[in-house]
Structures are given as structure tokens and as C-alpha cells.
Design a protein around this nucleic acid. Structure first.
Length: 112
DNA sequence: TGGGTGACCATAG
DNA sequence: ACTATGGCCACCC
């Protein structure tokens, strides 16, 4: 893979690969990139995703509990939930319903 | 250069 | 059961 790309770029790339109507966790992406403990970096990358030229579906990335922890970082607090619901994901009180069903594992889908 | 930070995860009390 | 703290590592000042 292109080692020139920063950790952020890889995070963005994986985030864009998330299928519509699916979600994944920071830890899953981090683990896919090789560092499960650096899941904080993934979230932080999302924090800077607004700097990216292309749109990054940060709304498809949630924490391990399926909770929209980062919704407060969106332009509008309801933007994240609204986007998810628009893709067919049920979100109640910032928590994704049927999280296990809509969960998208990059390790399985993208293969190692 | 060094230290602080962060949208997390895991373990211990 | 919940709360508190540690760890981890790339990026910014």
C-alpha cells in the first residue's frame, strides 16, 4: 500500500469505503490499520476530516457501543443522525439500533 | 524538541 | 453494576 499516505489518509480511505446503510467503529478501523489501541487517532482523524477535499462519511463511524459520540462535532448536532436515518439506519437517542446487523467490518469486507 | 491532545477501548477498583 | 484511570500513537503548537 502507499506508505506515503498519512494515517489520516488511510482512515479517510476506509471511511469512504463504508457501504451505504452500514456503520463501523473507530476501533475496527484502527485495528484494520494495525493499531487497535490507536482508535483515538481514528476519531481525531475524523475531527480533521473537514479538511479533506472529498466528503468523508464520518457519520458512518461510531464508537464500539454504536453510540454517536462524535455527533457534537458535526456542523449540526442532528446532521449525523439524520444522515444515518436517511441511509436506513435507525438511531434513537444517539444510539444505533441493530448495530450488530449494520456493523461493517473492514477486516472482513476488505480482507487483509 | 517536547509536550499536550483526542469523536476510544480495556482493565481495575 | 458503574466510575475512574491507563494506554496508545499520530498530529499540532
Amino acid at each position: 500500500m502507499a506508505a506515503d499516505e498519512s494515517f489520516f489518509k488511510q482512515v479517510y480511505k476506509v471511511a469512504r469505503l463504508i457501504p451505504k446503510g452500514r456503520v463501523t467503529s473507530y476501533g475496527a478501523i484502527a485495528k484494520y490499520l494495525g493499531s487497535a489501541q490507536s482508535s483515538r487517532m481514528v476519531g481525531w482523524a475524523m475531527n480533521s476530516c473537514h479538511s479533506e477535499k472529498e466528503f468523508v462519511p464520518a457519520h458512518r463511524v461510531v464508537n464500539r457501543n454504536g453510540l454517536l459520540t462524535g455527533k457534537h462535532h458535526f456542523p449540526e448536532e442532528n446532521a449525523m443522525q439524520k444522515a444515518l436515518e436517511k441511509e436506513g439506519i435507525i438511531v434513537i437517542q444517539n444510539q444505533i439500533q441493530n448495530f450488530e446487523k449494520v456493523f461493517w467490518n473492514p477486516r472482513s469486507e476488505l480482507e487483509l
